[in-house]
Computed example of a mutant assay.
Amino acid sequence: MRPVLEIGGTHVTAALADPHTATVARSVRRPLDARGTAEQILGAVVRCAGDLEAAAGEVWGVAVPGPFDHDKGIARFEGVGKFDDLYGIDVRSVLLDGVWPRPAETVFLNDAHAFLLGEWRAGAARGHHRCVGITLGTGVGSAFTVDGGVRRTGPGVPPQGRVDLLRVGGRPLEDSVSRRAILARYGDGDAANGVLDSAVDGASGGVLGGVLDGALDVREIADRARAGERRARHVFDETFTTLGAVLAPCLRGFDATALVVGGAMAASWDLIRPALRAGLGDTPVALRAGALGENAALIGAAVYVT
Score class of each variant (00 low, 15 high):
residue 4 V to I: 06
residue 6 E to D: 15
residue 15 A to F: 06
residue 15 A to S: 07
residue 19 P to C: 02
residue 21 T to V: 09
residue 29 R to N: 10
residue 34 A to K: 12
residue 34 A to I: 06
residue 35 R to L: 11
residue 43 G to K: 05
residue 43 G to C: 08
residue 48 C to Q: 01
residue 49 A to C: 08
residue 50 G to W: 09
residue 55 A to E: 14
residue 57 G to Q: 06
residue 57 G to W: 07
residue 58 E to P: 02
residue 63 A to Y: 00
residue 63 A to L: 02
residue 66 G to A: 10
residue 72 K to F: 05
residue 77 F to D: 02
residue 79 G to D: 04
residue 80 V to P: 04
residue 83 F to M: 08
residue 84 D to F: 01
residue 86 L to I: 09
residue 90 D to R: 07
residue 90 D to T: 02
residue 95 L to E: 06
residue 101 P to K: 02
residue 101 P to M: 05
residue 102 R to F: 09
residue 104 A to W: 06
residue 104 A to R: 15
residue 110 N to W: 05
residue 110 N to R: 05
residue 110 N to V: 04
residue 112 A to Q: 10
residue 113 H to Q: 11
residue 114 A to Q: 06
residue 114 A to K: 06
residue 115 F to Y: 14
residue 116 L to W: 02
residue 120 W to H: 15
residue 121 R to F: 04
residue 124 A to D: 05
residue 125 A to H: 02
residue 126 R to T: 12
residue 126 R to G: 00
residue 129 H to R: 15
residue 133 G to Q: 02
residue 133 G to T: 02
residue 133 G to D: 03
residue 133 G to N: 03
residue 135 T to I: 12
residue 135 T to Q: 07
residue 137 G to N: 01
residue 138 T to N: 02
residue 141 G to E: 01
residue 142 S to C: 09
residue 143 A to Q: 10
residue 143 A to D: 10
residue 143 A to N: 10
residue 146 V to D: 11
residue 147 D to M: 11
residue 152 R to E: 13
residue 153 T to M: 05
residue 154 G to F: 12
residue 159 P to A: 09
residue 159 P to S: 06
residue 160 Q to P: 00
residue 160 Q to W: 11
residue 163 V to R: 11
residue 165 L to S: 11
residue 166 L to G: 07
residue 167 R to P: 00
residue 168 V to I: 04
residue 169 G to W: 06
residue 173 L to M: 07
residue 174 E to G: 07
residue 177 V to P: 09
residue 184 A to H: 05
residue 185 R to W: 08
residue 190 D to A: 15
residue 193 N to L: 14
residue 193 N to K: 13
residue 197 D to G: 12
residue 199 A to S: 15
residue 201 D to E: 09
residue 203 A to I: 04
residue 204 S to D: 15
residue 212 L to T: 11
residue 216 L to F: 13
residue 218 V to C: 15
residue 219 R to E: 14
residue 220 E to G: 12
residue 222 A to D: 04
residue 223 D to P: 00
residue 223 D to F: 01
residue 224 R to H: 15
residue 224 R to E: 14
residue 227 A to Y: 11
residue 227 A to G: 15
residue 227 A to W: 10
residue 231 R to Y: 06
residue 232 A to H: 00
residue 234 H to G: 13
residue 242 T to K: 10
residue 247 L to D: 11
residue 249 P to W: 08
residue 251 L to W: 07
residue 251 L to D: 08
residue 252 R to A: 14
residue 255 D to H: 13
residue 256 A to Y: 09
residue 257 T to D: 14
residue 260 V to A: 09
residue 263 G to Y: 03
residue 264 A to G: 15
residue 265 M to W: 01
residue 266 A to E: 08
residue 268 S to Q: 12
residue 268 S to A: 15
residue 269 W to A: 01
residue 276 L to N: 08
residue 280 L to N: 13
residue 281 G to E: 13
residue 284 P to S: 03
residue 287 L to Y: 09
residue 289 A to N: 06
residue 290 G to N: 05
residue 291 A to I: 00
residue 292 L to G: 06
residue 292 L to S: 07
residue 297 A to Q: 11
residue 297 A to L: 05
residue 297 A to T: 07
residue 298 L to S: 09
residue 303 V to W: 12
residue 306 T to W: 12
